[in-house]
Simulated assay, not measured.
Amino acid sequence: MFTTYRRRWQLSRVKPGDGSPLPPFRLWQLFTRSVFAVDLPGPDGGRFEVDLRPGADGSTRRSPASLYRDGVQVARANLPATFPVPGGVVEVAAGQYGVKRAHLVTDGGAEHLLTPHPGSLEGRRARLARRFPRASWAVGAVAVVVILVGGLLALGRGLEAVTHSPAIAAQVGTFTMPFHLSTTGLVVVGVLTALAGTERAITFRSRFLIDRRPGRRRRG
């Protein structure tokens, strides 16, 4: 029920497009723009593309999310957004590290990930996974480890700060980190964690789940 109400609310926020053509994707837009596409069959179908610019807002010329049909803008909205298309809707959303949802949801409830533009971060990462699956798995594994380490360090620093409050210390005692990173070390960990989070986001694994290891067959 919540999903239905959310979808209706997002559909109500969609505005008509201005009929402008889809701008070409440029290399310098790697970290500010994503483009996804899906080809829908039938007389009402065509090629639908979603141009996502999470950093855009009402004060910028571009909308955060724009829907194009055969290269012409037909709708626009703020993120998260739901666009009506023949046979279903296209749902898009952005998170802290990038796009976290770009799916076609059919009227029957099936979900399909849209195809990323080959020049985008998502498209380049998908190409790496296709061409070098083992290297892709290794990159994902490193990203997960970095995120876990960064999360544990943040948790430890938080516990240390909270338990050193006199009122809490009197009840549960204190927790002291076994080591403390320098300011430079904290910056490095923060940057690595952000990069790892971005890597997981562009593979649409925003919950930091790692890919199944190449070469292993799923049972059942």
Rank of each mutant, 00 (worst) to 15 (best):
V38L: 12
A102W: 03
L152I: 15
A77E: 00
L30E: 10
A75F: 04
V187L: 14
D211S: 10
P54I: 06
F132V: 12
Q73I: 05
D39G: 08
A194I: 08
F208D: 04
V149K: 04
S136G: 10
H117V: 02
L153V: 09
W28R: 12
P80Y: 09
R130S: 15
P133E: 11
R124M: 14
S63N: 01
G58S: 09
L40D: 04
A129V: 13
V92E: 02
P133H: 10
T4Q: 13
S136N: 12
G109Y: 07
A154E: 04
V145A: 14
G42T: 06
A194N: 05
L148Q: 11
I202S: 03
V144H: 00
V146R: 01
G197A: 01
F83N: 00
T163P: 06
L153G: 03
G45C: 08
V145N: 03
D107A: 13
V189M: 06
A169Y: 11
G119W: 05
A65Y: 00
V187E: 02
P133W: 06
V191Y: 06
R124W: 06
G87L: 08
A135P: 01
T60G: 08
L114H: 01
S12V: 08
I202G: 00
G88W: 00
A167W: 06
V72N: 00
T193V: 08
P23L: 09
R134W: 12
A143T: 00
F31Y: 11
L67Q: 00
L104E: 03
R61Y: 10
V187S: 05
V189K: 00
P133R: 12
P43I: 07
F31D: 06
A138K: 00
R125A: 13
R33N: 07
G185K: 02
F175I: 12
R134T: 12
L30D: 11
W28K: 10
T115S: 10
L121N: 02
L67K: 01
K15N: 04
D51F: 03
G156N: 04
T60I: 07
V74F: 02
G173L: 13
A161W: 08
L159F: 15
A169N: 13
D18V: 05
G87V: 05
T4N: 12
L11A: 08
S182L: 15
A75E: 01
H180V: 07
N78A: 11
G58W: 12
R47G: 09
S66A: 15
G55K: 09
G220S: 10
W9H: 14
A169W: 08
F36M: 10
L155F: 14
L159R: 05
V92T: 00
A81T: 01
R125Q: 13
H117C: 06
